[in-house]
């Protein structure tokens, strides 16, 4: 079943185009990583999908409905981010208590157990939580809704290292027990790639690729060795990234293909997170070139 279907989706703000041209489909019961640099349009895309803001043009369907102001979409989806707000008159305990009125698949036991595990204070007000605890509470809320479409926007921002890894573990365990469609955005692909089935990479408001994680890991190879040999091997090929290591040696990343083995040139795999970084880099050189 197709849960999300975007065709040529555009979103214009007053002075800029946040989404230029987004076309992709998301099948149900997969965990997909929404990856992109700062300003790529990740947050805008998630807000359109959640129905918080309206698209400027193009076609967007969530559960076959346009999500904006749609009850079916809002009852069956949730977007967890750092802007989630709850009424100031409710304590954290009150929020968890009223949640089943809005989310029919709400899992009170999971919510209570996670709440206790992370040692949150039930009498506290949401607005008064520290950045890290707010992120933790929002994550607990999002997981416990068991929404058919659960979206997280940079959920681990503000969480410390231990909470992050607990969060990813909790997400995976609950997904195994109750498979559903999960879309999760992050700058930190490396720390969550073990969870992902697919990657949706966007850049400047456009989709760069939508592939399985395994395909992304096999997208590119890196060659390292004497400059003249490496340049000869990569001549005429699409170069994704290049770095001069010292006066004689060079590091070049190209699309994966069968390459002849040449003495002195090492061939390395390129991690999924490096692939995403390189294909979304518009500059010719890297940070090292600034310091030349």
């Amino acid at each position: 079943m197709t849960v999300i279907d975007c065709q040529n989706l555009k979103k214009r703000y007053k002075r800029m185009n946040a989404l230029e041209d987004i076309t992709f489909q998301l099948e149900d019961q997969k965990i997909t990583g929404l990856i992109g640099r700062n300003g790529a349009g990740k947050t805008t895309l998630l807000k359109v999908l959640a129905g918080f803001i309206r698209e400027s043009s193009g076609d967007v369907k969530v559960f076959s409905n346009n999500p904006y102001n749609n009850l079916r979409v809002s009852a069956n989806s949730i977007l967890v981010d750092d802007q989630m707000s709850f009424p100031d008159s409710l304590t954290l305990a009150d929020i968890l208590e009223t949640a089943p009125d809005f989310y029919k698949r709400w899992d009170a036991e999971l919510a209570t157990n996670l709440f206790r595990y992370f040692r949150l204070n039930p009498k506290q007000l949401h607005a008064r939580l520290s950045k890290g605890n707010k992120a933790t509470f929002n994550m607990i809320f999002g997981l416990s809704t068991r929404c058919e479409l659960t979206m997280f926007d940079e959920p681990t921002n503000g969480m410390d290292e231990a909470v992050r890894s607990d969060f990813y573990r909790a997400l995976l365990k609950d997904y195994i027990a109750h498979p559903r469609t999960i879309l999760i955005s992050s700058h930190h692909l490396a720390e969550m790639e073990h969870l992902l089935e697919d990657i949706l990479l966007i850049h400047k408001g456009k989709v760069v690729f939508h592939q399985s994680l395994e395909e992304v890991k096999e997208y590119a190879v890196a060659l390292q060795g004497p400059t003249n040999l490496v340049e000869k091997m990569t001549a005429g090929k699409e170069i994704l990234h290049t770095k001069q290591l010292d006066s004689q040696r060079k590091y070049v990343v190209i699309r994966r293909e069968d390459l002849p083995l040449i003495e002195g040139v090492m061939i390395y795999p390129v991690s999924a997170s490096d692939v995403c970084m390189y294909v979304t880099d518009d500059r010719k050189g890297g940070i090292d070139d600034v310091f030349k």
Partner: peptide, 17 residues
């Protein structure tokens, strides 16, 4: 695939593969 996913902390689709 689900037991493997839990055991090795990976996506079930990867385990299935």
């Amino acid at each position: 695939q689900y037991q493997l996913a839990d055991l090795f902390n990976i996506n079930p689709a990867t385990a299935a593969k």
